[in-house]
Design a protein around this nucleic acid. Structure first.
Length: 436
DNA sequence: TGAAATGTTGGGGCG
DNA sequence: ACGCCCCAACATTTC
């Protein structure tokens, strides 16, 4: 009888440092087999086979593989439906337990329920741990147990909770001697899983004290390097949220608040799963969206004739990233100036954003449309010209992404601002009265 | 984590 | 000197 193994299943926690489930796996008393599965159910939904995110994951797995090789271990990388992969694993290895970090998206929770059932039917424990967030769904709730729907009181309770319990950390590195020893296993190629390599340009998963210290005063200027650029690393777990929160706690309250928004939207998605397809405020689903496909195409292409909007949309399609201030501007523009359903914009972001996260993206779009938790009221309509004057006064960001800006080839505005503003207010008002 | 419309105030030019 | 008007500048309200 071979000795039993513990599997650590990497998902959106692609790091060895301060990893909760990995730490617990390494202390489970059994050698730890590190596993990653390219989930065929997720990959088949990606239409673009040059997806930066898949390349990012792939490159990160190669780094993990190298680091795991130092103590003589190796990452096992599989490709397929997770349930099938685990059936296969149970035939190949003597597995005593499976450890993983919690993933709160609807697909992930359904998947994990199925995997847990499969494993338990074979007498194998399936343990999940909190790792992706500081506080999960039921840890920050009102005194009566109900979930918060307004950010400010949520954040107040969140901070109280942090003071009481601290951040904690998981020194997984200290226990690498408990990894399962094996010769290096080869990764499948990107081609094997149906993708083509795409260059991924992201900043390294490190913190920058100067940026974090000045974050509150520089974050709104898209021409500056005034944000942390950690979103992609938080998405895939190539940094530890606990490490980032500890730095933010020390250096900048405004930055800490952004991390709290992240937990807030995760909790909102958990407690109100209808937001995936419907407005949080249901009366907003009565809005008579215009949904003009040609206008949507121009928005996607960055050809609306509004420079700040177009610059953002081009940054997105060319890099897989958009500055957060500009995300708010383009989202407001789509929903309010063009009267296109926020779900169209949400889907476009989901397709292109390297840092795409369902909860944060959905929360952000519902905020912009006015229909979400603690959302911007519907009559709060960004004026692209004023936003530009305020946050890109030298037009440096606009010029960086729109070389032909100020040339005759640049399109005229797709819609008149004053008209669009009045049309939006009238349309929303009508829907909200009708629905109420 | 808005913007525009409307209201108020107070300094200075001018008759 | 005084009242009147103009209009920034700021404040409040409304969407």
């Amino acid at each position: 009888m071979p000795s039993l193994l513990t599997v650590h299943w990497f998902r959106r926690d692609l790091r060895l440092h301060d990893n909760a489930a990995l730490y617990h796996a390494l202390n489970s008393g059994m050698p730890v087999l590190p596993l990653f599965i390219f989930d065929a159910c997720i990959l088949e939904d990606l239409q673009n086979k040059e997806d930066q995110r898949v390349s990012f994951i792939y490159e990160t797995l190669a780094v993990l593989q190298t680091h795991l090789g130092e103590p003589g271990s190796s990452l096992l990388v599989m490709h397929g439906e997770p349930l099938q992969c685990f059936r296969q694993l149970l035939g190949q290895y003597a597995i005593g337990a499976v450890y993983a970090n919690g993933d709160y998206e609807p697909y992930a929770t359904a998947r994990d329920t199925a995997i847990g059932n499969l494993l338990r039917a074979s007498g194998i424990e399936f343990h999940t741990f909190k790792d992706h967030v500081i506080f999960e769904k039921d840890e920050v709730v009102k005194d009566n147990g109900e979930p918060y729907t307004i950010f400010t009181p949520y954040s107040r309770k969140w901070k109280q909770r942090l003071t009481a319990s601290g951040l904690g950390n998981y020194p997984s590195e200290k226990f690498f001697h408990n990894l399962h020893r094996s010769p290096a296993l080869s990764l499948p190629s990107l081609g094997d899983i149906g993708f083509t390599h795409t260059p991924v340009r992201v900043t390294p998963p490190t913190t920058n004290d100067a940026i974090m210290t000045n974050y509150h005063s520089t974050r709104d200027f898209p021409a500056l390097e005034g944000t942390t650029r950690l979103s992609v690393h938080l998405r895939f777990g190539t940094v530890s949220i606990r490490d980032i929160a500890a730095r933010a706690l020390e250096l900048n309250e405004v930055l800490l608040n952004e991390l709290i928004w992240r937990d807030f939207y995760q909790a909102v998605l958990w407690h109100f799963p209808h937001v995936v397809s419907q407005s949080f405020k249901k009366e907003y689903d009565n809005i008579a969206w215009r949904n003009d496909p040609a206008e949507f195409d121009r928005w996607c292409a960055g050809e609306t004739g509004y420079p700040i909007v177009d610059a953002g949309m081009r940054q997105l399609s060319q890099t897989g990233y958009m500055h957060n201030r500009v995300r708010m501007i383009v989202a407001s523009f789509l929903c309010k100036h063009l009267l296109i359903d926020w779900r169209w914009g949400e889907a476009w972001f989901a397709r292109l954003l390297l840092d795409f996260d369902l909860a944060a993206n959905n929360g952000g779009w519902q905020w912009a449309a006015g229909c979400g938790c603690d959302a911007a009221p519907y009559f709060r309509i960004f004026n692209p010209a004023l936003q530009t004057a305020r946050y890109d006064p030298n037009m440096a960001y606009v010029r960086r992404w729109i070389p032909e800006f100020e040339s005759p080839g640049y399109p005229r505005p797709i819609v008149d601002h004053a008209m669009a503003r009045q049309r939006c207010i009238a349309t929303f008002k009508k829907a909200l009265i009708k629905g109420g």
